[in-house]
Amino acid sequence: MKALTGNRLVDGEVVFWRNGQWAERFADADLFADDDPAAEAAEAHAKNQPTVIVEPYLIDLVQSDGLWAPLSYRERIRALGPTNLNHGKQAEGGAAIEALLHAHGAARSTGRIDLIKRK
């Protein structure tokens, strides 16, 4: 599974693609199958929004506590907010946050690797 992420240009907030718009919570993100052409279409659409979003890319997901979470540690931190447990999105709690906190995997997302290679 994959999700589309990027940073909102006006404030740098990490955002996730949901139904043609950007949502601030990973739990709200649209999830795409690995071979879903809709994922590439969403990424292409997002890349055509240079005044809204910065460097959108697809991230790999893994199951955690029955929910989905980013595979890479970097992407889990981006989804949770600051690593201080009393701040950021993780301070809100809930099942989606618990799944993010308990996810395992340290691999880089293939979308991020592709982004690094392009530079």
Rank of each mutant, 00 (worst) to 15 (best):
M1Q: 13
M1T: 09
M1Y: 12
M1I: 04
K2R: 15
L4Q: 07
L4F: 06
T5L: 12
G6D: 01
G6E: 07
R8I: 09
L9W: 02
L9F: 04
V10P: 00
D11I: 05
V15T: 06
F16W: 07
W17C: 03
W17N: 03
R18G: 10
N19S: 13
W22D: 00
E24D: 14
F26Q: 03
A27T: 04
A27Q: 13
A27G: 14
D28V: 02
A29T: 07
A29F: 02
A29D: 14
L31V: 14
D34F: 04
D36P: 07
D36S: 05
P37K: 00
A38P: 00
A38N: 12
A39Y: 00
E40Q: 11
E43I: 02
A46N: 03
A46T: 06
A46W: 00
A46D: 03
A46I: 00
K47W: 09
Q49L: 14
P50F: 02
P50G: 01
T51Q: 05
T51G: 10
I53V: 05
V54A: 05
V54S: 08
E55L: 11
E55D: 04
E55M: 07
E55T: 03
P56L: 02
L58D: 11
L58I: 02
L58H: 09
L58C: 07
I59W: 00
I59M: 10
V62S: 06
Q63T: 11
L67E: 14
W68D: 03
W68H: 13
A69T: 11
A69I: 04
P70Y: 11
L71V: 00
L71F: 04
S72P: 04
S72C: 12
Y73W: 07
E75L: 04
A79D: 03
L80H: 12
L80E: 10
G81F: 02
P82S: 01
P82H: 11
P82K: 02
T83D: 09
T83K: 05
N84Q: 07
L85Y: 12
N86M: 05
N86S: 05
G88W: 07
G88D: 09
G88H: 08
Q90H: 04
A91R: 11
A91H: 08
A91Q: 13
A91N: 09
E92A: 14
E92L: 10
G93S: 09
G93W: 01
G94A: 08
A95L: 09
A95W: 00
A96D: 15
I97Q: 07
I97S: 14
E98I: 06
A99E: 08
A99N: 12
A99H: 08
L100Q: 06
L101M: 09
H102F: 09
A103V: 10
A103K: 14
H104D: 15
H104S: 13
A106M: 13
A106C: 06
A106G: 14
R108K: 10
R108G: 09
S109D: 06
G111V: 03
G111D: 05
I113N: 01
D114F: 00
D114R: 01
D114A: 06
L115H: 10
I116M: 00
K117G: 12
R118M: 01
R118Y: 05
R118K: 11
K119E: 05
K119I: 01
K119S: 06
